[in-house]
């Protein structure tokens, strides 16, 4: 190395502490045969591009269109969601809760960030943040108001706390004026937030906002 000491130290390449720790762990786990960098890359690509809330939107659109499917979904969500091909990590024990005129459902994970990955992808930043985790349970109506969701006083708000064993998905109410729409068009109206309970589905195109 001594021969290189005559040039300027302009190569101030530095890694942050956290990058050093991740690299240390990854290289050790790779050497021990516990992880394979290529497989890690495939996994990351999948979550960045293929898994996401569009899967959940298809589930909701099917339930809106097919009463028999909806009954199966509310009875055994894991199996009904698997019918559409959405299975896997963090989707093993799903429960679907239905919004009605009497009940509005809201999903949170108070302890960490349990979330149904196969149907919603990875959770948004606010879902993982302390304010949402703490306040969704303590003052759900105030939280909903901040998200722009006005729940009528007479409608009950139910808060579902996800765990490593049980993960919840909200089945929002089908928007009015969508009677003629097919499943594909309905799925376009289903937002991620509406399946967590902090939003409503979009109105159909052409409907008064």
């Amino acid at each position: 190395m001594g021969a290189h000491h005559d040039h300027d130290h302009d190569h101030e390449e530095r890694w942050s502490e956290v990058e050093l720790r991740v690299k240390a762990l990854e290289s050790l786990l790779t050497e021990k045969g516990l992880v394979d960098p290529a497989a890690l890359e495939v996994l990351i690509q999948t979550y960045e591009t293929k898994v996401g809330p569009r899967n959940g939107a298809q589930v909701v659109a099917r339930a809106w269109s097919d009463p028999a499917y909806k009954a199966r979904l509310l009875e055994d969500a894991t199996a009904a969601i698997a019918e559409l091909g959405f299975t896997g990590r963090q989707g093993e024990d799903m429960v679907v809760v239905e919004n009605t005129e009497a009940v509005h459902n809201l999903v949170v994970c108070t302890l960490c960030s349990c979330y149904p990955w196969p149907v919603l992808g990875l959770p948004p930043a606010w879902y993982k943040a302390a304010p949402y985790r703490a306040r969704a349970v303590r003052e759900p109506r105030a939280v909903l108001a901040e998200f722009g969701v006005a729940v009528p006083e007479e409608r009950e708000v139910r808060v579902w706390d996800s765990t490593a064993e049980l993960r919840y998905l909200v089945l929002p109410q089908r928007p009015p004026g969508t009677e003629g729409l097919d499943e594909g068009a309905l799925a376009e109206l289903v937002t991620r937030d509406s399946m967590i309970g902090v939003g409503e589905p979009l109105p159909p195109a052409g409907a008064a906002a």
Binding site: V22, L43, E48
Partner: peptide, 27 residues
């Protein structure tokens, strides 16, 4: 009450090390 940070459908991982840490735990 602290404000709730909101986002759109932004990037899942902000930096590559976050993705690496995520993937190692899953594997």
């Amino acid at each position: 009450s602290p404000a709730i940070p909101r986002d759109g459908d932004g990037p899942v991982f902000r930096e590559p090390w976050e993705a690496a840490a995520f993937a190692m735990a899953v594997r």
